[in-house]
Each structure stands twice: as structure tokens, then as C-alpha cells.
Design a protein around this nucleic acid. Sequence first.
DNA 1: TTGCTCCTCACGTCACGTGAGGTGGC
DNA 2: TTGCTCCTCACGTCACGTGAGGTGGC
Lengths: 273, 273
Amino acid sequence: MSDTLTIGDFSRATQMSVKTLRHYHRVGLLEPADVDPNSGYRRYSTEQIPAAQVVRRFRQLEMPLDEIRAVLAAPDPAARSQLIGDHLGRLERELEQTAAAVASLRELLSEPGRESPIEHRTVPEVPAAAITATVEVEDALDWLHGALGELYASLDAQGLAPSGPAGGVYSNDLFTEARGQATVFVPTAGDIRPVGRLEPLVVPGVELAVATHAGRLAEIDRAYGSLAKYVAQHALGIDGSIREYYVVGVHETSDQERWVTEIGWPIFQTTAA
Amino acid sequence: MSDTLTIGDFSRATQMSVKTLRHYHRVGLLEPADVDPNSGYRRYSTEQIPAAQVVRRFRQLEMPLDEIRAVLAAPDPAARSQLIGDHLGRLERELEQTAAAVASLRELLSEPGRESPIEHRTVPEVPAAAITATVEVEDALDWLHGALGELYASLDAQGLAPSGPAGGVYSNDLFTEARGQATVFVPTAGDIRPVGRLEPLVVPGVELAVATHAGRLAEIDRAYGSLAKYVAQHALGIDGSIREYYVVGVHETSDQERWVTEIGWPIFQTTAA
DNA sequence: TTGCTCCTCACGTCACGTGAGGTGGC
DNA sequence: TTGCTCCTCACGTCACGTGAGGTGGC
């Protein structure tokens, strides 16, 4: 058995701890080449070293064990590099989010008291083309961009012009449970044919307190905070879904710093604004 | 109570889920301004919104809850920005590691069979200046750089010249338990005064199988794999600590691609190499 | 023979999420 | 009054780590 290693030697060979190797055996990610039936001693083959190194690299990239298993079991190189590419893409987007969070943290700490401007608005019902789905809050931004892209493209294909800025209607669960129903819409007067995820929808009218947020959506939480504070202090809150209006958004410019987003919080009908 | 919010409204105000808010209450990170003694209903003040936003940002940056608590409780702005800076530094180093892991993964997948050159060597005992500590494997590289820096600086201050490249002796636990004793040394013939962590040490002689690794230490695992494979296939392994020799390292150049590291695995005395 | 290596098993950790079962507030 | 909001409690998840208690191999 000259080319088989004890778990200790395999640990030194692969730079993974013995506990980790036993864990990977338990979950079937890295099975020893042989297990002594009465001592239980594991034996790894030298041929398993490269696979173990790959596993270690994926773990350094925080790929979940299940996905690593899928990569190792991938039938062909194409499927494999697809999975890897997907993960690297996710990593990259996380990286961008981290960079945005660092910038935004500095701003939060240096300018703590900044509040967004708030106004009251009576929003009439409006016909629109809409896409609705149940989404996780962490995927919400990506989903929003995808859905907006589809909406504008389909309206264009149907020769329909938007009659106002795009908007979104977000169920309370999306905030309180981190998962819930979301609807994005583009108002349009025309007759919509349902293609893809697209559906016609009459967005109901509401009375809103509206906060305006300038800049990237990653930092929109400050405007949410301002708005919630305003509504609480004036005791205006009623049940209903939060709205957002993308006054200047992806469709207008790719420079996120120039985006303008309105957030609408449902309130009592008030006579004066 | 116009400026107090239910947990649901506070959730919408801060973009954190209700489960998360309850968790933060439980662990004392974010205590509601008031809790109804008989219904248990939580009430948050509008003044808690900024703190909650800060917590959320830190969590986006993966700061542990205990550290966030420490930041929020920091007595002065200096202590606070110290903690934040420390964390951002850690993040940055993780980012570098991630980038290195991506590069290294590509290489692993594209060039699977590459083995490092291996030779046998009889290493005589040698007097040296050394630093020894118990380290976690994840901190090992940083610790190594710090210790090497101290060693070279202290020898220089004492007017002693190194008589060979720096090296390290690593206990098996460091690999198998991910934590163990590590010693870095710089061989020198002179009379060492113990300053700081520095101690004189006679590094014992050994018989080694040696693999040579060219490039950054993040990718040294491939050479470990080659070496372990070689030792297993020739049934040469004996108990003893792994050694590394930093033939070209930090002390020689800051260009990590040009580093050359030898790894020594203890083996039986053999007559022929 | 000694001491190290290896084993299992149960439980812990971290930051929440899940889901059952129930109550409170508008 | 209805239905939503809110509550607790116990358990689950992910990827291991800890530690007790014990055995195997050179």
C-alpha cells in the first residue's frame, strides 16, 4: 500500500484539518479510498490529493459543500465551468456590495443626522404592465433590474410608450420576513399583450408619504429610515404596501449616483400636505 | 407615543427582518425602547433608527455581533474607529486571499498534473535566532511575516549576520488540528541576546525529502501535495515536524511571484538520493 | 511498552430561519 | 368581529470545532 496515506498525512498533504476531512467523509464530499472495517481507520490515496486541493480552493471561495459536490460530479467540463462561473459571478457581486457598504458606512458615521425630504401625495390608479413574483430580499435588487429590463423591452416590442416612471409595490412580508411578493410596473395607457412574465395591471390609487432618495439603491435605507420616522412622529401610518418609483433609474442612466428613487409609505388621507 | 414604532414598522424603517430584530434583542445588541410587560410587544424609538442602520452596515461587512456591540459601546471616537479600521483591514486581506484563490483555482483546474521537484537532503544542526508561538493556521502567514521581520531587525540591531536562509519548524498539530506550535528561525553563528520574542535555538539536524515551490505562499499547497505523494509512494515517512526554508522570501524581495520556498518532510535515512 | 494517532459520539458555535401554537390590537 | 401582527419556544441550518472516552499501530 505504498500510495495510500493516513488521515494525518493526508491532512499535511492537503492543508486541511483532520476534523474537516472527517466531516467531508461524513457528508460524502471526499470519501477515503479505504476504511479499515474493524479499526475504522481511514486511508486516502495519493490520487485524491488534487481533488482535495480543488475542494479547499472552493471552500476558500466560500462555495457551499453541496455545490462543490455538484462541481465534482459535473458530467462535462462545460457544466462544470458553468457552475464555477456562476459562483465567481456571485462572489464578484458580493464584492461590489461590500465596497458599497464600506462607502456607505463612512457616510453613515460622518453624516449621522441627514434626513430625506418628505411630501404627501395622492396617487390615482393607473393602468400598467407589471411583473410579479415572490422574492428574497437579498435577491430583490437583481430581480428588480431583470424585471424592469423585460418590461421596457416588451413594451417597446409592442409599440407602447410608458406614461410615467416605473414603480414597484412591495408586500410587508418582503421587509418583515425577508421574503415576499414584489411587483414592478411601468404605467402605460395601451392594450398590453401578456408575453413572458408580463401582465396587465391596474395599480390602485393611494395616499402616500413620499421620501426622495438620490443615489444608488444600496443606500436607500436612509430614506426608509427618514420616512418611517416622519410617519411615526405624525401618527399617519396605515396598513398597505410600500411603493417605490424609479424617477431616474436604469432605464434613464447607468450612473447609479444620478438615480432618483421615491419611496411611498401608505398614510391616512389628510387635507393639508 | 408618536415617535415609537412597532417591530414591523421598525423592520420597514431599517430593512432588517423581524426575526433578526428579535434576535438582536435577545442577544442585547439592539434593545427596544420599550417592551409591554404583559403582551411582550416591542416598541422601538425613531431615535434607534440610525443605530440600527449602522448595525446593518456592519453585518453587511460580516462583522461579528460581539464586535458590533463593542463598536457601539466604544468609549470614544478613536477607540471606535480603531475597531472599525481593524475590521476593514481584515476584510481587505480576505479580499486579497479571495483574489489569490481565484487565480490559483484556475491554475489547479487548467494544469492538474504539475508536480514540484523533489530531492533528499541531510540537514545538519544549526544555531539560530528563533521565535516560537502557538498559532492558528489561518493566522500563520501573517504571524510568519511578523516574526521574520522581528528576527531580521533584531539580528541587524545586534550586528549579527544570517548564515543561511530563514526557516520554519511546524508541529503536526498545526496541520491536523489547524492550530499548533510554530517556530521561525534565522540561522546565525553569533551570540544572541534574547530581546522581544527572540530566543537562541539550536535547530536540530534531520533527514528530509525536500520539495521546492516557486511563487506566493498561498499556493504552496500544491508542493505539499507533491511531497506527500512522493513520500507515500516511496514509503519513507517518519514522525517529525515539517520544515520550510524561505530561500527567497520577504527579506529578499517583495515580489511574491519570485519567492522560492523549500518544504522539508522528515524521512528515513537513505544512502542514495 | 509507551505515547501518539486514530476513532466515535454528543454537543457547541454563529447568526439567524422555520414552524408550531397561541395571543393581542385595531 | 376578522384577520393581521405580534409573541414564545424548540428545533433546524451550515460547516465545521470541542472534548470526552476509548482503541489501534508502530
